[in-house]
Amino acid sequence: MADRDRDSEGRALNARPRDGLGRPLPYGAPGVARAPEGVLRSAEESLREAQRLLDDGMPFHAHEVLEDAWKSGPVEERELWRGLAQLAVGVTHAARGNRAGAAALLSRGADNIAPFADATPHGIDVTGLCEWARTLAAGLHGHERPPTAAEIAPRLR
Results as ranks from 00 to 15, higher is better:
S107K: 11
V65C: 09
D19S: 03
S107W: 05
P147K: 00
D7L: 07
A85D: 01
P154K: 00
E151L: 06
R78Y: 10
A94I: 01
R4S: 09
A95I: 02
V32Q: 12
T92Q: 09
A88W: 06
P36A: 11
R34P: 08
A69G: 05
M1F: 13
R34K: 15
L106K: 01
N112F: 11
D125H: 07
R34N: 07
H61M: 11
L156C: 05
G20T: 00
A133W: 02
H93V: 00
L80V: 09
E76I: 09
N112M: 07
G90C: 05
A50C: 07
G22T: 02
E44G: 08
D125I: 02
L40D: 13
A2G: 04
W81V: 03
A85S: 15
S8E: 15
D118N: 15
G31E: 04
D19T: 01
T148H: 11
A15H: 14
Y27L: 14
I124H: 07
R157L: 07
D125A: 12
A33F: 10
R155I: 01
V126C: 08
E144M: 06
A110E: 03
W81A: 01
R16G: 03
R82A: 05
R155Y: 11
A50Y: 06
A50S: 12
F60D: 06
D55N: 12
A95F: 12
H122A: 13
G90L: 04
V126M: 07
H63K: 05
L66A: 04
R52T: 09
R48Q: 14
F60V: 00
G97Y: 13
R48C: 02
S46K: 05
G123V: 08
S72W: 06
T120W: 12
R82N: 15
A95K: 03
G28A: 08
T135G: 09
A94E: 01
A137P: 07
P17A: 04
F60Q: 00
A110K: 00
R145V: 06
G142T: 05
A102C: 04
P115H: 04
R78M: 12
F116V: 03
L47N: 09
V75N: 08
V126T: 03
E64L: 10
A114D: 13
D19W: 10
H61L: 13
A15P: 04
A100N: 07
G10E: 04
A95W: 11
Q86F: 08
P121S: 05
G97C: 08
I152P: 09
G123D: 09
A119L: 15
E76M: 11
A104T: 06
D118V: 04
E44M: 09
T135K: 13
A104W: 11
P121A: 03
R23Y: 06
L13T: 04
E67R: 04
A100P: 05
D19F: 10
E45N: 11
S42L: 12
P146I: 02
G90Q: 01
P147L: 00
